[in-house]
Design a protein around this nucleic acid. Structure first.
Lengths: 335, 335
DNA sequence: GTGGCGTGTGGAACCGGTTCCACAACCCCC
DNA sequence: GGGGGTTGTGGAACCGGTTCCACACGCCAC
């Protein structure tokens, strides 16, 4: 049976209020008294009850983190950044994972409860307007990661910039005909970062008076197999692209497989760029866009702590820069 | 400001005790009264405060999950199984990640606190004896996953069986000279599952009157590069093995790289088997051992729920079977 | 009619903290 | 030496649930 604040008070011969003041290092405690209380705390191996604290303070000391597809490497990496930052702040991290639309709706309905959490961090999930209204009513601070909502603080990586980076890298190699393999343009779950990367590519090309042909844009399910199929048809077309930008490494690997089965040499006849820099990208030798994923998590936690402390919600949007990692799947355009 | 049980009691014209009885569907409540209370609950959109509940019940409704290397795919997959099972049981999952020895010790010191958690699930972490004593004193139920401790309930995959499975597969292909690439035999963090897989390999070979040569066993750090280096020296030896079993897919991919740089054909001249069946194994075409990872998580949660309800700690050890996934890196032994 | 029992109910006490109020002790100054 | 301010402290009230006790009421049996 763990000791309570009352036990400590008795042992130190003081009142409960005084022990509480010592615990929270409040002023107006005589140094001698403080020492006696600390001694009693040590002697009894007293640790304040989180439950009682929460009830009394009406703060839970815990943050709900809602993830979409927990098992994706990019999500886990973000989670790691969040966990580490939350530990430093002595906040508990409660993870809620979403894999289906039903669960998404259930989670977003149940989560805005001030008596359960002090704040919400949503990864790749943006609330609908009715959900937002409910969150607002609950008074809970929210920070989005890798998601967009005009009215909520969010930490994102520069998807448009990443698309431009990829395109410019290929343009420098002299490529003129580009292909793009992306996610479904209107995902039922999650956020269209794929679309923003595509926009970045388009912007970079336009600066050179170029454009990507509609038949060289293929969007669909986030699997390797699907990407391979899409790529195979694209590469069989007459004026096939000399460079393909994929919205994820998983897709890029599908692209590489398609090239292999068609006997197209990479990077001799075709350059390929991925996105995410997952572990697999390294050993496949895939050129890709690297994002500071763990850092997005850490930044989001800092924003959250600020919001809990009452800071303003500005700047709403925090954008972290991405970088290009060149490996062995990109090279000069074929003559 | 959310409604409290007092508000409901007033609205329904009953006492707080009655509302509580209705909430917890206790007997001895008049159906008419019950209906009136439920009506009031609905009208006020009342949700009981978790904090107050916890304090009063002296139960936290949350489970601490301690992970070693959260970002490894196998760990995340287990976590997914745990999360899903905990949600079904209306328990919160609080994740604590370990990356360093210091943090390991800090987490194991802080975590056995009954006022914070109702139970502990440790993934790939086993407590020392002094830590175990402290956990025992706290009275918290513990379940280990992928970890061994003679006195604690645990859910593991059949590592020895997995090793045997791999070896038997290669024996059927006529291989006689085997190599093994494993983790450090005495890891500072974590559990020597690598060693148990090695034991399985040894057992299977012995049944055929074979043994693995000491110079064909290389153990070290869990990285691809390291595995590649170890393999290169092993493959340069005179009577090099015709089949290599790696204790993880990451290592196996290092093995494949080594073979490629030395110009050794896989599976023509060398067969390679990994362990884990991570996503990358699929697109590399790696033959590997598949483990029911998410299921270990779910099983652990069920054990935990049983323990919380007061079930006995037997059976202490629960072993889940593994299976072999044959892809393109194994084949008949060279003549 | 009355004693005994079961059922439904209100309300006090409790879980273990925090906060606020009241008050004592002391210092200082006029 | 009395009024006013500061400092340190104890203790009550509170956070919002659960649980237990006491009691009212109805029913049945003797």
């Amino acid at each position: 049976m763990p000791a309570t604040i009352q036990d400590v008070a008795r042992a130190a011969g003081v009142g409960r209020g005084t022990v509480s003041r010592v615990l929270n290092s409040r002023p107006n405690v005589d140094p001698v008294t403080r020492a006696r209380v600390l001694e009693a705390i040590a002697a009894l191996d007293f640790v304040p009850s989180a439950a009682a604290r929460r009830l009394s303070l009406r703060r839970t000391q815990s943050i709900a983190v809602v993830t979409l597809h927990l098992t994706r490497p990019s999500v886990v990496e973000r989670l790691r950044g969040i966990e580490s930052a939350l530990v430093d702040a002595a906040l508990d991290m409660i993870v809620l994972n979403i894999e289906t639309v039903e669960r998404r709706d259930a989670v977003l309905r149940d989560v805005p409860r001030p008596e359960r959490f002090d704040g919400l961090i949503l990864i790749s999930v943006a609330p609908h307007d009715t959900e937002l209204a409910q969150i607002r009513r609950s008074g809970l601070p929210v920070v989005l990661i890798d998601a967009h909502h005009r009215a909520l603080p969010r930490v994102v990586c520069d998807d448009v910039g990443g698309g431009m980076l990829a395109a410019n890298h290929l343009l420098e190699y002299g490529h003129r005909r580009f292909g793009f393999i992306g996610d479904e343009p209107r995902p039922t779950l999650g956020v269209p970062s794929s679309r923003m990367r595509f926009r970045g590519v388009g912007l970079a090309l336009r600066e050179h008076g170029l454009a990507i042909r509609p038949e060289h844009v293929a969007e669909g399910e986030h699997t390797r197999e699907f990407a391979r199929e899409l790529t195979e048809t694209m590469l069989r077309s007459a004026a096939r692209p000399t460079a393909i930008i994929a919205a994820s490494d998983t897709k890029a690997i599908g692209v590489l497989e398609a090239a292999r089965t068609l006997g197209i040499d990479v990077p001799g006849e075709l350059s390929v760029i991925g996105y995410d820099d997952v572990e697999a990208a390294d050993f496949v030798g895939l050129t890709t866009i690297h994002q500071p994923l763990a850092e997005t998590g850490a930044r989001a936690v800092h924003r959250m702590i600020g919001l809990i402390a009452g800071a303003a919600r500005v700047p709403l949007r925090e954008v972290l820069p991405v970088s290009l990692v060149e490996r062995r799947t990109t090279g000069p355009a074929p003559a």
